[in-house]
Simulated scan of single mutants.
Amino acid sequence: MHSPRPVFRDDHEMLRVTARRFFERECVPHQAMWDEQGSVDRQTWLKAGREGLLCTGVPEEYGGGGGDFGHAVVIGEEMARAGVSGVGFSLHSDIIAPYIVRLGTEAQKQQWLPGICRGESILSIAMTEPGGGSDLKAMRTTAVRDGDDYVINGSKTFISNGMNCDLIVLACKTDPSAGAKGVSLIVVEAARPGVSRGRKLEKVGQPASDTGELFFDNVRVPVSHRLGDEGRGFAYLMQELPQERLLIAIAQAVQLERLLELTVAYVKERKAFGGSVWDFQNTRFKLADAKAASVALRTMVDHYIGEHMRRKLTVEEAAIAKLFTTETVWKHLDDMVQLHGGYGYMLEYPIARAFVDLRVSRVVGGSNEVQRDLIARSL
């Protein structure tokens, strides 16, 4: 089971086999149904928990896999390779759960993590607000101290897992006058009085992702639900964002490999003007460019995976990875849609599906304009 990629060990590759089988068996056959209903059924979350595919980085004593970042990577790669779309496992396991692992008290970890690892408690993180976008310092949701409680008021939008979530890691202002230093993170149960869900948002792509609005109307939450120190929330968010951006980049590298393979097969089979579409020099040159880009992305991403596993990945490097992979994939995906002709516009073809699903990658995790600003600061 030795990995051809030096960044992975044998135990990573063993998990890869499990993940590949799971996505092919439990997700691919249900994708159309999930797209139609606008969410992934809870049974799939519970099955993923039973197979050890959730929260691989959470310590074993709380029900997690006790693994490292490499285990999260192989699961994310296999989901992308299978073409599974809108399933929020990585967000739950590798972006939100780490906040509780790193910031939570022992009591908080014991209370929340076992159910999270089993897939019983689905996580969402509520940062973005209507009119706020990437400007987290400008958030208006407030948590006002009242004795042993916080009283929370405000609204959030574009919340992935928002319609299905059981626990919300909420970014809010505990001191509205302090700007970034007034932001705190509080865990709120979705079933608490005063928490309500708005509409499920209709997106360009990824219809199975249950993206929604959340509203908080005088929601009382114990102060003991705060993660970490009051006023340190913005700093905590900034610490976790590089991993989220690298995960986006990793998925992009796999997607370009997958889409290139599909397109090469299509153009060799598709007949036009007495030959195949592959016979045209333009086709071969476009796909040669895509192949060169694919190798470049794979080399870059594997290097940054290694850096992150050594805890050396910088904010700037994560921004570079996210910016370069998402922009590169989009350019070549556009070319590959063109090579499919009219079929490239039909959603039953994976290339068209990718075209709508992957557009958001240049926005999520901080828009690419934010990534450019982060990179430019170090120039």
Score class of each variant (00 low, 15 high):
277 V>L: 15
276 S>Q: 10
275 G>Q: 13
286 K>E: 10
240 E>R: 05
222 P>H: 03
197 R>K: 13
244 E>Q: 11
238 M>K: 12
197 R>Y: 06
192 R>Y: 01
260 L>C: 07
272 A>W: 00
218 N>G: 15
269 E>P: 00
233 G>E: 01
233 G>P: 00
197 R>L: 01
213 E>K: 00
198 G>Y: 02
223 V>Y: 03
274 G>F: 01
219 V>G: 10
200 K>P: 01
269 E>N: 08
277 V>N: 03
216 F>W: 09
215 F>D: 12
241 L>N: 06
205 G>M: 09
233 G>A: 02
284 R>M: 09
224 S>R: 05
242 P>M: 11
211 T>W: 11
242 P>E: 05
218 N>P: 12
230 E>K: 06
213 E>Y: 09
215 F>S: 14
204 V>D: 08
195 V>F: 03
202 E>H: 10
244 E>R: 14
280 F>P: 00
225 H>C: 01
257 E>V: 07
236 Y>F: 09
232 R>A: 14
281 Q>F: 08
236 Y>Q: 06
224 S>C: 08
281 Q>M: 13
214 L>D: 07
282 N>R: 09
237 L>P: 01
261 E>Q: 13
204 V>T: 14
252 Q>V: 15
196 S>G: 09
253 A>Q: 05
263 T>L: 07
200 K>A: 13
287 L>A: 07
200 K>N: 07
202 E>M: 11
281 Q>G: 12
246 L>R: 08
199 R>A: 12
265 A>M: 03
265 A>W: 04
245 R>E: 06
221 V>D: 01
192 R>F: 00
244 E>L: 11
195 V>R: 05
267 V>C: 07
269 E>Y: 03
259 L>E: 07
244 E>V: 12
223 V>F: 02
275 G>L: 11
255 Q>A: 15
194 G>F: 07
282 N>Q: 13
221 V>F: 04
255 Q>H: 14
228 G>P: 01
193 P>V: 05
262 L>Y: 10
192 R>V: 06
195 V>C: 04
213 E>V: 13
227 L>G: 08
250 I>V: 15
230 E>H: 02
287 L>P: 01
289 D>P: 05
203 K>A: 15
276 S>R: 12
194 G>Y: 02
265 A>T: 04
263 T>N: 01
269 E>T: 12
248 I>A: 07
233 G>T: 00
210 D>A: 14
194 G>W: 00
219 V>Q: 06
236 Y>C: 03
273 F>S: 10
226 R>W: 02
232 R>G: 00
284 R>C: 03
204 V>S: 12
207 P>F: 11
270 R>H: 09
223 V>P: 00
266 Y>R: 07
202 E>V: 11
195 V>E: 13
219 V>F: 07
231 G>S: 11
218 N>C: 14
229 D>Y: 09
195 V>G: 06
256 L>T: 04
276 S>K: 10
260 L>Q: 10
193 P>C: 04
225 H>F: 00
264 V>R: 04
231 G>P: 08
250 I>G: 08
216 F>H: 05
264 V>E: 11
210 D>I: 00
281 Q>C: 11
197 R>S: 04
246 L>A: 04
289 D>H: 12
268 K>I: 03
287 L>N: 09
258 R>E: 04
250 I>M: 07
266 Y>M: 10
214 L>Q: 11
